[in-house]
């Protein structure tokens, strides 16, 4: 008998296709799309790594390339709840080509915006849905504020975000949470259990050009393209942050490997607050663990994983499932 599938909505700020943007969202989506365990109800886009219109085009092109136009998509939100800032505006400076602009117009006519899309999927779902959020939490927070009654249709929120070891975007904050702290606060305070994968664990497995070398010699143009984009991003990172070795992290892949491939992680129960004020600490996740976890910690932070197994399974899964694509 076939295992029961897990109903899942994925929310992403996918940057693939617009150079210098992190490619881990794309890898994460590819893993999810190749996982029979998941019943993907849809994929929605949000502004984060790139502006949401760019993310929407990227998502559309990726699905087209791997012949998965059967997947439903939603577009937006464009603006974080707490507003944009100069760093985000600089990150969002990609402009769309004419073809992309036409594509986007069509998507906006024929599809729903992300928030309505998620609400619709939750309304029609027969059993509680898993939400996998691998970008800022704007869409999810707006769903929760507009339809608090739909909380019971959400089984769990699984997200990549937060850090207790500082971050790159500020000395104390991780990008996804920092980009929309108000949204993150709404999500962590919604009463729903959040399973989160902070920088602490996602940066524990560095990915080097060598880790993904395989993708280059499968005779697949698509895998070669993924390889090239990843390696370019690694070099871009090492330049930007002054790191000697070219490397990147599969941040967003971790929550997907957990839910879609049942990869085993070690978790710690905790509570989480998100700093929305703070002259230095806006966007920081304050994780109460151990003596600070309180009486009833409802969130779970991923703290450990078998590094080799995560890396090997991810790379192999991509290789095996996408080697026939051009």
């Amino acid at each position: 008998m076939r295992e029961r599938q897990i109903p899942t909505i994925i929310d992403t700020d996918i940057g693939l296709g617009h150079g210098k943007a992190d490619v881990d969202d794309a890898i994460a989506l590819l893993v999810a799309l190749a996982s029979p365990r998941l019943n993907i109800l849809g994929i929605t886009t949000v502004s984060g790594n790139v502006r949401s219109d760019v993310a929407t085009c990227n998502l559309f092109m990726l699905l087209e390339r791997i012949k998965r136009k059967d997947i439903l998509i939603g577009y937006g939100c464009a603006e974080p709840i707490g507003g944009t800032n100069s760093i985000l505006i600089k990150r969002w400076s990609h402009s769309l080509t004419n073809a992309e602009r036409d594509l986007l117009r069509e998507i906006q006519i024929t599809r729903e915006d992300s928030v309505s899309f998620i609400i619709e999927r939750l309304l029609e779902a027969k059993e509680p849905v898993y939400i996998v959020a691998i970008g800022p939490l704007t869409n999810i927070a707006l769903c929760l504020t507009q339809r608090p009654d739909l909380r019971e249709k959400i089984k769990q929120i699984i997200l990549m975000g937060g850090s207790t070891i500082g971050g790159k975007v500020t000395p104390v904050a991780e990008f996804n949470i920092w980009a929309d702290p108000e949204a993150a606060r709404i999500v962590f305070r919604s009463g729903l259990s959040v399973v989160f994968f902070p920088l602490d664990i996602t940066t524990s497995v560095p990915i080097t050009p060598d880790s993904i070398r395989k993708w280059n010699n499968q005779g697949s143009e698509f895998l070669k393209y993924l390889h090239k984009e990843s390696v370019e991003y690694m070099h871009f990172r090492s330049e930007r942050y002054g790191i000697r070795e070219a490397q990147m992290f599969f941040h967003d892949v971790m929550p997907v490997m957990y839910i879609a491939q049942a990869l085993s992680f070690i978790f710690e129960d905790c509570n989480v607050e998100v700093e929305c004020s703070g002259s230095l600490t806006r966007g920081m996740t304050i994780v109460g663990r151990g003596v600070w976890a309180g009486e009833t910690p409802i969130h779970r932070m991923a703290v450990n994983v078998d590094h080799d197994s995560f890396l090997k399974k991810t790379v192999d899964l991509i290789t095996e499932n996408y080697r026939s694509f051009e």
Partner: peptide, 18 residues
């Protein structure tokens, strides 16, 4: 080292910048 004085949850934090 910078000291957070305005945070809702982070006041009194020593923000250490390498």
């Amino acid at each position: 080292v910078l000291i957070e004085t305005k945070g809702e949850f982070t006041t009194g934090m020593t923000v250490c910048i390498d």
